[in-house]
Design a binder for these strands. Structure first.
Lengths: 224, 224
DNA sequence: ACGACAGTTCGATCGCGGTCGAAACATCGT
DNA sequence: ACGATGTTTCGACCGCGATCGAACTGTCGT
């Protein structure tokens, strides 16, 4: 009975249905208020508040106070990655996959993962960015090439941002089981997709649905 | 309150201290009996048995009955990956990192991850295998090159095995945050390291410690 | 066939943690 | 300054599930 890092503590935080629903909702990447999360989890406000403080204490969440609103968000991409890993196991193990409903199908095509795009579209995009040498593999890292830097600035995407987060990161896709693009660049691309109205976020879901013309535009810019 | 895959169910299975200890012990890759796991978790036999059936029902474990012994093991590398992801978060979040004890240091250098080698040594090895073009990156997959195939057969490692598992897989290292080699090849290499007595498994730990001569041999064969 | 060992099932106990209503607290609009 | 809205704290309730001892089932030795 060795004592490693307190894995049971972390897992039990995710192990409560109410908290799991909250975390799942936050996987959308947008920070939410306590009331929104209470609704999402299907519990009363006091209950939600209690759960949220536990998640905070556990280090899974960050808090941004804005006036009388308190926005909760996932603490890190690492936490998001852990949750995707758990989702992956639940998917694989669950006997629920009788028929993948339309919503699940949409999720497989394109969805939000924390703050960037995931799903088949995202995986295809990363492949093409490598093919076009806009991104380069190094070790298991991803680096922006000089041509990539100019290419993205031409699209109005700033790649100079000097946040702590890396510009490019690989993130494993639970549906496709291959990597897609995370990091500030991945986040910026998702921002552009939404800003240009090429796609919209499905209500109450992580799914991202492209409009017909939006898909064409996206494919022209990122999949050509 | 959407209903995705039952993530809370999976997480709560890992969320109990006794079960977490069991799973942690099984991360060593060797299947263990119910009594061994009871000892490992610090609970009585009936309690352990109850936990084990829950883990079985949850699909996290496999069972191999051999006479009056029943060997429990992790169900899949995916489950192992999920647990490593949780460990990663617990490590990052835990305020316990006062001083990394010697055991933790050993774990960082080399340890067992399910059935293959992880840690700094394993990450270095994968880098060198790429440099020597014995393995090739494709997409985010890893492929064995023809020279690699002959190289490994010369070492007495069969790379033709046609199991369902891929020969090569990348597995993310929680200590180094880079990938190491999993898959049947990764497992075979670990087998060889142990069989040649280059290193031994630390008692009651996932740590792998190389002997002086063993380390030289390992470096000559895999890190040269 | 018998006893020893490995493991599971049963039954009862008990405490931790999730739950909500009411009240307290904080911050905004006006 | 006041009421309205968003959020946390308090207190009490309640149930699920973790736990273990005892009994039961199954398998191996001899």
């Amino acid at each position: 009975m060795r004592e490693g890092p307190d894995i049971a503590r972390i897992a039990s935080l995710v192990g409560d249905p109410a908290r799991a629903n909250m975390l799942n909702a936050l996987m959308g990447g947008t920070a939410l208020t306590a009331s929104e999360l209470a609704l999402e989890a299907g519990v009363s406000l006091p209950t939600a508040s209690s759960h949220l403080s536990k998640l905070m204490e556990g280090g899974l969440l960050t808090l941004a106070s804005q006036g009388r609103h308190r926005y909760y968000g996932l603490a890190s991409a690492q936490v998001a990655g852990m949750i995707e890993a758990i989702i992956g196991v639940a998917e694989a193990v669950g006997p629920k996959r009788v028929r993948p409903g339309p919503r699940d199908a949409a999720m497989r095509v394109a969805r939000v993962c924390y703050d960037h795009l995931a799903g088949e579209q995202a995986v295809a995009m990363l492949d093409r960015l490598f093919d076009r040498k806009l991104l380069l593999r190094e070790d298991n890292q991803i680096r922006l090439s000089s041509s990539g830097a100019s290419h993205f600035s031409a699209l109005g995407i700033d790649t100079q941002a000097k946040a702590r987060r890396p510009v490019c990161r690989a993130c494993l896709d639970w549906s496709v089981r291959r990597s897609h693009l995370a990091g500030t660049l991945g986040a910026a691309i998702l921002d552009k997709i939404i800003a240009e109205k090429w796609a919209r976020r499905e209500k109450n879901s992580r799914a991202v649905v492209f409009s017909p013309t939006g898909r064409q535009a996206f494919e022209r810019v990122f999949l050509s």
